[in-house]
């Protein structure tokens, strides 16, 4: 089995933060910088030098692109966009997450082929506005998403053996099922729908649908067992 790799392009404060947060999920983490090798000699972690004109042959030969992820976090927006577009041009299956300073560069990065863009200013301001305007929900969502709280959010895939398969979504009281809450369902067209949306209401559950649930760890496990499904992460199911 090939090793999963996280490729971080750009050696800055965000690189270290990303590295710390993804190291449990990837076997190999490689950081690349546009700086010359001599300049990177004193870096706190191992950093390789790269050039925007690279042919990417080394990555192509040594990294399993399908199981890898790239983070484009160069500080210069134009360079970051150029990097994203050249990665996408060379590796069609590579999952690319890019950091953008604002909405304008976020749009360009999406056009350049990034799977996901984190617009830093918008995200920070969203968090601030939520802390001020909806302090309780902000606290709860933050703890569900980011903190080691007992409450978890999980994605559960409906398998062939699932008891809900082929059932009308309307017939199940999703919201209060065994101590967990089902927030959304994502079906074959890759769009997630709020559980009470008009589209979701008419939906018949099929094999491969993904449920987004919130609950305590034990309850989620129980739920998985009961409905004959499992937690699932697959980036190919992720679309805009």
């Amino acid at each position: 089995m090939s090793k999963t790799t996280a490729l971080i392009f750009g050696y800055n404060k965000y690189a270290l933060e990303i590295m710390a947060n993804v190291k449990d999920k990837y076997d190999v983490i490689k950081i690349f910088s546009l700086k010359e090798e001599e300049e990177l000699f004193n870096a706190a972690v191992e950093v390789e030098s790269f050039d925007l004109g690279d042919e990417w042959t080394e990555i192509d030969e040594n990294v399993d692109i399908k199981t890898s992820i790239a983070f484009c976090i160069l500080e210069d927006t134009a360079e970051n966009i150029f990097l994203t577009i050249s990665l996408r041009a060379n590796f069609n299956d590579l999952r690319i997450i890019a950091l953008a300073s604002n909405k304008e560069s976020a749009n360009k990065l999406k056009m350049a082929g990034a799977n996901k863009v984190i617009p830093l200013v918008e995200t920070t301001s969203d968090i601030i506005a939520n802390i001020l305007e909806k302090p309780i929900s902000s606290k709860v969502l933050h703890s569900i998403l980011y903190e080691e709280s007992a409450l978890k959010i999980a994605q559960i895939k409906i398998l062939n053996k699932s008891q809900f398969k082929d059932e009308d979504i309307m017939n199940i009281d999703w919201t209060r099922y065994n101590g967990i809450l089902v927030l959304a369902v994502m079906h074959e067209d890759m769009k997630s729908e709020f559980i009470y949306s008009s589209r979701a209401k008419r939906h018949v559950i099929r094999e491969g649908d993904i449920l987004v649930v919130v609950g305590y760890e034990e309850d989620i496990k129980e739920f998985e067992k009961k409905i004959g499904s499992e937690r699932y992460v697959n980036w190919s199911h992720w679309s805009w």
């Binding site: 947060n21 993804v22 999920k25 983070f71 997450i97 996901k116 980011y146 959304a184 997630s192 992720w238």
Partner: peptide, 10 residues
């Protein structure tokens, strides 16, 4: 990024 690589849909 941690959440994105772990639970992208959620």
């Amino acid at each position: 990024t941690k959440e994105l690589v772990g639970k992208p849909v959620a």
